[in-house]
């Protein structure tokens, strides 16, 4: 089950929508649940669905449709590097390569110490600031030169 605190946060989201449209809060609720649990297991998705009074499979549809939900455990820091064309033109792939070498992992892998997971991202909507990467879905880092990446990794550790 989710903590009181998480449920309170979910309630705040629910309040944004008309009273008979609780399901609208499912995306935010899953984000809150993921923040709390680290990733979304079956039980958690089911709990969120029950809390919002929607079919569990409907919540599962949502959890599997949007990229940023993690349906399997990830490292403490999930780094998502954009390699889409505009970024690739300005170092996106280089940044990813640098990270792969530095962390010793490929995309969709987690470092043995469980600290980092590397993901390939689609357009993050910050193409002018390439290379860009996203830390744990929420923090965007721009102009990620090797020095910046080194700094970020040091800061995470």
């Amino acid at each position: 089950m989710l903590s009181e605190d998480a449920l309170k946060k979910i309630d705040r989201e629910v309040a944004k929508y008309p009273a008979d449209q609780k399901q609208s809060a499912v995306m935010a609720a899953l984000v809150i649940a993921q923040d709390e649990k680290g990733w979304l297991d079956r039980e958690t998705i089911g709990d969120v669905a029950d809390y919002l009074g929607m079919a569990q499979i409907a919540a599962y549809e949502v959890a599997t449709f949007y990229n940023m939900y993690d349906l399997a455990p990830v490292g403490k820091h999930k780094l998502t590097v954009c390699t889409n064309l505009p970024c690739a033109l300005s170092g996106g792939v280089h940044a990813a390569d640098y990270l792969k070498k530095k962390l010793g992992i490929d995309f969709n892998e987690t470092t043995p110490d469980g600290m980092f997971t590397l993901k390939e991202g689609e357009c993050l909507g910050a193409c002018g600031d390439a290379p860009v990467l996203l830390v744990n879905n929420k923090r965007m880092c721009c102009f990620m030169t090797p020095e910046e990446i080194d700094k970020l990794i040091a800061e995470c550790k």
Binding site: R42, A55, I57, A58, Y60, T64
Partner: peptide, 22 residues
């Protein structure tokens, strides 16, 4: 009257399924 099946995942990866384990 009860959504017991859904289309999970997206695009070519889409799969028709019931909620995991159900």
């Amino acid at each position: 009257g009860l959504m017991e099946l859904g289309q999970a995942y997206r695009g070519e990866h889409a799969e028709i399924m019931s909620f995991v384990g159900q």
